[in-house]
Design a protein around this nucleic acid. Sequence first.
DNA 1: TTTACATTGTGGAATAATTCACGTGCTATT
DNA 2: AATAGCACGTGAATTATTCCACAATGTAAA
Lengths: 227, 227
Amino acid sequence: MKVDKISELTTNRLSIYLRCLHELAAAHIKTTSSDGLAKRFNLNSAQIRKDLAYFGEFGVRGVGYYVESLRDHITKILGLDRKHRVCIVGAGRLGTALADYYGFSQTNFEVVAMFDSDVEKIGQIIGSLVVFDLKQIAEVVAKQQIDVAVIAVPANHAQSVLDEIANAGITAVLNFAPTPLRHNDDLKLKTVDLTISLESLAFFLAKPALENGSIMKPIEVNRRIIN
Amino acid sequence: MKVDKISELTTNRLSIYLRCLHELAAAHIKTTSSDGLAKRFNLNSAQIRKDLAYFGEFGVRGVGYYVESLRDHITKILGLDRKHRVCIVGAGRLGTALADYYGFSQTNFEVVAMFDSDVEKIGQIIGSLVVFDLKQIAEVVAKQQIDVAVIAVPANHAQSVLDEIANAGITAVLNFAPTPLRHNDDLKLKTVDLTISLESLAFFLAKPALENGSIMKPIEVNRRIIN
DNA sequence: TTTACATTGTGGAATAATTCACGTGCTATT
DNA sequence: AATAGCACGTGAATTATTCCACAATGTAAA
């Protein structure tokens, strides 16, 4: 199959498939099928086959996919076959919570440094990490070979923090500050905006019940997993 | 304009516009235009006009949009003109960080209760909140008039927690557990999956540099804000 | 009042994403 | 070895989303 660019929707789904494959492998299940996976996630099976086919022919007709083999392929595709070294900028509540977020260590991400500009916080020890002065970021990033940064500072500081991160040579950033950020094209910025998520719930609550279908429709289990 | 269903992409953008309108209003700016907004977010101006037009004709031709009036309209559309009462299930690191997350209080969301099943945590005081036993959720939700729940428990407990939340009558849930969850159609579930976000960064880092365009292209400022 | 100008609201084109549907190739059984 | 059955891989159809382009409609100035 030929494609110029892989959609982020596709790579997001690969993450989901991968997690499922880990579970199947742990349960000693040897093979699975696009249909089997699709049912778990309430996705279309053709979509799963297509997502995978962008990267190669991993399946066997009449059989499906070998769980361990597919898991290894996706792991490689997503670049999870090597360790990623992460720093967190912002040693507040959110930053410290993220510092020992289980999900990070789960998949080859390791938080190796924290930064802050607040003199009260610099030097503090959080978990097993010392909080560095943000001014030192370039040197620490170089020495520690950090390749991913997390922004966990208030919105009004996020742009300058991002600039410093970019300056330090980091090209992959996960941002929790609810604000638009400017950046060069060679830096990948992923923003997790909790405010938007919350407000989309509020919109749902604001809609008249009829529109939501909660009154008219009979009880029904929905297996939708991706919002 | 006539539409059956508003896309979530549209409502997410409304949140973004709203935040910007708050800033403009704070700066005493009276009017703005779809083009002015579009430039801030690197969006197409027609898209902004269309997003707004789904809900009414808020603009004035030749002038643009009155900042305060548009802000008020969007606030109402998103259901942010009334308080939402939030509970957080899971009093671990993430849950407690979320409990006093500034962004919540920013837009009419108030965290009014926390729950956990761990006897060590029940009864603890976090900020100004006591951690309740999850078993009590139905009665607390009713008494406190809670309408939004946040799931901040490990993935393996998330499904049963969601079931209890749904049972308690809550219909809007923000989920941080990285796992697919089953639910009825009359419940709105929004999942924030940090693992997927991280892995999409890893994919970017894994791609050969040429594909990313970092070598071939001249320096250029990208104003992209939505990933 | 007329004219010049700015910006909306929107039909329709273009692009992107999902789903259908079917030929292909592999396995298993007889 | 032949046949049946299953599930992949993928071109084509459908659906969703974004963007273009322009008539409509407002303001402001002469």
